[in-house]
Design a protein around this nucleic acid. Structure first.
Lengths: 254, 254
DNA sequence: TAGGCAGAAAGGTCCTACCATTTACGGCGA
DNA sequence: TCGCCGTAAATGGTAGGACCTTTCTGCCTA
């Protein structure tokens, strides 16, 4: 006797696991399963779908990889619906970049075009508090880069946070998402800028000044500064490419 | 005597399937497994990893979902390494957009900023043949839209191809990728423009003229036309939103 | 020579048992 | 009475085997 809505059909096909995955995904996307809601246990779903537990598990694996489910162990464990974050997309981009080994210049080009739009939107929409916070972060970043024993890890983190804060100020989730994705695929190249003392100093100052230009609602100056940032990054990468005909890779830098 | 490299450690952890997936992914990304290459059969890998077949299968499912593997049945079947295409990323974006129901205006905004960069790059880098091809496509599109019994399917296809051709002319895979992703997440809104007769006519003419401006290396005019395109799209969506308060919201989502 | 049929290889599914982890509950001691 | 700890239950994680389905190969027959 069934007291609850069926929720899942006991459907089954040649590829049962795909069918199961599709049904669950459809239920989630249709809102029949809300975020943070817990799915039945594997053994229960095994009954509902009229299939083996292996098929259920494979379906759950696929959906977990897709970012739709979070799977926990123990009692009160099970599959929990979760909102797909920007992480999974970033991973896809990182994979794509690695497999197709996209030229760094292509990435830089794209990032520059995004950033150019971003600062305009940030100036137009960012609150004064957000702008001040950006300035503070940029100054902290500058201070961190000026230290002798700068921590590469912390620098990377601050750089990432700065970019994300900028993206968030644009008040458009797409930009935030694209920035998250780029951070994951870009980081390996990006930090080369901070290895060279000359560029490090300039970059730090440039970031701080860009933040100030944004805080002062000076879009043209901000654009110009962003342009300078990427010009530096390009020339820095060019120097690297030129000198690394002899592949001298320091073991700890990347 | 061992003729083959070990390739996989018989490693195992609390979550064997994740470990397996990571090892295979690492092997692919490191180039130890080339695209189109066939992995050992599940039963063989079961031996190599020293684990059960279920763990192997779950790992393969995750990697397939990630777009890294293609799995075929039958003899000569098995898991084949494949280059991760732009499809998987587009799916992620579509999921993200559906779950977070991003405002169409946010998508339009992002697309416009991308397109603005794109036409500059297309003019700078596109070959004359590519530019002429773009004009031809745009004119075909215009003709198709002017027909009484216009085929919505074909229109969508042509629109998509136009955008992708433009992205390809920029000669930067990132733009191509982002355009692919956007096409998948955007299409549901985009075609509203073609439902309204007034806008349909204007949009068709606008596309054709944009293509011509690109072919004539007139970036400013092209930018202006693109701006007009999105201005139309915005006002069209506004009218739609005004006339239909879209009362269909999934219940209980509050 | 052409067509079809059987076998082999491989994924797809089911089942059953057991292991590992986490939570909840109840007993025991201070 | 309060708090700690241990045990049981629920649930995902793993192992291994058996069988089915699909697909290719190659032989065998007409």
């Amino acid at each position: 006797m069934i007291t609850t809505e069926p929720l899942f059909f006991p459907a089954k096909a040649g590829r049962a696991s795909e069918d199961v995955a599709l049904q669950i995904e459809a239920a989630i996307l249709a809102g029949r399963l809300a975020p943070e809601q817990r799915l039945p246990s594997e053994r229960e779903m095994q009954q509902q779908f009229g299939t083996g537990r292996g098929a259920i598990r494979e379906a759950l694996r696929a959906l977990k990889q897709k970012g739709l489910l979070d799977i926990r162990k123990g009692v009160k464990g099970g599959a929990y619906v979760c909102k797909v974050g920007m992480v999974s997309i970033g991973e896809s981009l990182a994979l794509f970049l690695k497999q197709h080994d996209v030229a760094p210049s292509a990435l830089i080009e794209f990032r520059e075009s995004v950033d150019q739009t971003l600062i305009i939107l940030a100036i137009a929409r960012g609150s004064d508090e957000a702008k001040q916070a950006l300035v503070s972060m940029a100054e902290e970043f500058e201070a961190c880069l000026r230290q002798e024993d700068h921590d590469a890890d912390r620098i990377g983190h601050l750089d990432r946070d700065l970019n994300l804060a900028l993206a968030r100020m644009a008040d458009n989730p797409i930009f935030e998402w694209i920035m998250q994705a780029l951070q994951r695929g870009f980081s390996s190249h990006d930090y080369t800028l901070y290895d060279t003392p000359v560029y490090r100093e300039r970059t730090a100052a440039n970031w701080a000044e860009t933040a100030r230009a944004i805080a002062e609602n000076d879009p043209l100056r901000a654009r110009s500064l962003i342009g300078y940032h990427y010009a530096m990054l390009r020339s820095c990468l060019n120097e690297r490419a030129a000198e690394s005909s002899s592949p001298r890779v320091s073991p700890g830098d990347s």
